[in-house]
Design a protein around this nucleic acid. Structure first.
Lengths: 202, 202, 202, 202
DNA sequence: TATGAATGAGTGTTCATTCAT
DNA sequence: AATGAATGAACACTCATTCAT
């Protein structure tokens, strides 16, 4: 169970993601993943003890990717003012999604497969999450709408994911539906303050 | 493939829905469904030619349930003013979801299982849909936000679904998070006009 | 199990034959036959107690059709001279096959499905068969080759069947490969006497 | 799909052939084959990707066996005179069939099961087949009867197959019906020249 | 570290057959 | 005479997982 060859582990995760994108998470099988990587099926079990562990691997990598997004540093900086942090969070997510057009979809697909979806989401939205504190602060400072955080998160993620999907499918271009348009909508849902025009080109 | 025993067909659909709720759409198998109904597995094929047809059956029943919601008549009435119609649409969906707490989840699960999700969604959001006209009118009359309809729909459905789920899971009660709270959030995202306070208790 | 409606029985047999021709005997199923006839599946069991009985029905009808061929009267007439009877048998089979291009194929396909093929063939070539006597006489009178009858029959049937199949498939036309050509070949295999030119246009 | 254990693959093919011989090709099922070999059913899919591939495997092995028959070298030698080559072909087939009493039957059964029989036959009788050239030469040199090759092949194969079957069934012995007897019959059907007595004991 | 071999449980689907109406 | 409903057995095929090498 020692994972020496990190390259191989990465290849396996990549292949899994490819399959999710192409056929959905329900279509994942160790056979298909192994074929895609070009290794033997049983080899996968050296890197992941389970199919479950494989899915977890994909999920966690995607989550951590999301956490390492550039703008995140600013978002988590407690010295920055709340409104800016909130807006930058929105912008970071948007940028991240356009740069990793399949990330949110992959996350959703994996959640779909697990009944214990709540457990997973917990790692993202859960109480231990650094984001929780931002939300609390946001509400307390009168920026964010006073509503359960899960609903705000839902708006944020579902709109950005749908928008990304639309762009991928060529339904429209970013010229037609810009960041400003999308973020105004999300901002209206999440906050009770005017859209921060000044932050737009920051 | 004649379906005399409508009771049985209903039972099969019900069992399928139960499984989706309990374990997700990916967990559906004809065997499980049959066991739940208490019939032989092959019997299912007398009522549904395919597993696909079974899923379609579940999907369509849920969709039609949604379309028959009380408030829908008002929503589709072209003599009513646009703002009222939009608000009533939102309210109808909200009420429907609370009364059928699993409907939206079931619909989403089935959509996520099918790659041809677009085809399905089409029946709901598609151009032939009577809702499309409401949206166009809503935008033209300056009530709705000028943004691709799919994004507005996403906000509407995902928030209501999440809210319903939260209530189901006992995360909070309707006293904590009321229709007004939720609808204000959605309204802010969907429209560019003030929340119609007067329609609240209509 | 009373077979009142002879029309229906015929329709079932016809449908079965159609399926054999299209997809082979292995593809026969009561469902397919019933669908083709436009009756319910269980209805078939009123006319045939078994799938086996259905196949038998097809087989026997085809066999009896073969026995009722015009030229057969002459063949079985013991007053006619042996050489003529032999030639007419060959000609009868040839004509029959061209007029019923699927008959021999159907018979072969049904035999394929039964291990007890020998039992079936028996009805055709067996000792009780009137043809047996013709063969014995043919050999005794020095017309037919002294060889086990089954081998002669094999040449006769397999060549005619293949020829019919070739014509059906458009591999060549009767202008290219005439009765004379084919019958000369068969005649050479079956007999030890010259080809009866005079009987050709009889 | 790598096949290291050639023994196992062979065993599977052998079991399949046994079933064909006992019950006909239509009776083949992966379960039966697996049971006969004494392995789990799914194991078969490690050696053959398909049931189709399994049948192909049986077919091709039988075909190649046929091609490797001793006398074949002489048959294909273009320096040998045509009449000898033709006779040796006949003799090779005869010897092969008696030594592999089920080969021709197995081949026929598999062909009958496939609608695409033509494709299969092609490998045996097809235009790319070295035998095709022998036939053309045979006709041009005035040895073979001027008739479509498929008809000649039919006589050759069906008679030898039937003869082999008769011997197997104990209908008669080789003392009763010798190679000479059978080959004279086939020779008469295939050629327009006298039987080559001198080649008999070669 | 990697693989080929193996398997048992499970998949959706078709089938021949029976029976009450 | 005809049918809809029902079923158990069989089918080809896929899967996650294990193990010896």
């Amino acid at each position: 169970m020692k994972k020496k060859d990190l390259t191989k582990e990465k290849k396996i995760l990549d292949a899994t993601v490819e399959i999710i994108i192409a056929d959905g998470a329900a279509a994942i099988s160790t056979t298909k993943v192994a074929n895609k990587v070009g290794i033997s099926q049983s080899n996968i079990y050296l890197y992941f003890k389970d199919k479950r562990a494989l899915l977890d691997g994909v999920y966690l990598r995607e989550i951590s990717r999301l956490g390492q997004t550039a703008g995140m540093k600013l978002v988590l900086d407690p010295n920055e003012d709340i409104l800016t942090r909130c807006f930058m969070y929105l912008k970071s997510m948007y940028d991240f999604s356009l740069q990793n057009p399949h990330s949110l979809y992959v996350l959703e697909q994996i959640k779909l497969l697990s009944k214990d979806a709540a457990d997973y989401l917990a790692q993202l939205v859960g109480p231990k999450n650094p984001m929780a504190e931002l939300f609390t602060a946001g509400i307390n400072s009168g920026v964010l709408r006073q509503i359960d955080r899960s609903l705000s998160m839902t708006v944020l993620f579902s709109v950005i994911e749908k928008h990304t999907e639309n762009l991928q499918n060529g339904l429209y271009t970013e010229a037609d539906v810009s960041f400003e348009t999308v973020s105004r909508m999300i901002w209206a849902a999440l906050t009770v303050v005017p859209y921060p025009e000044n932050l737009l080109n920051k």
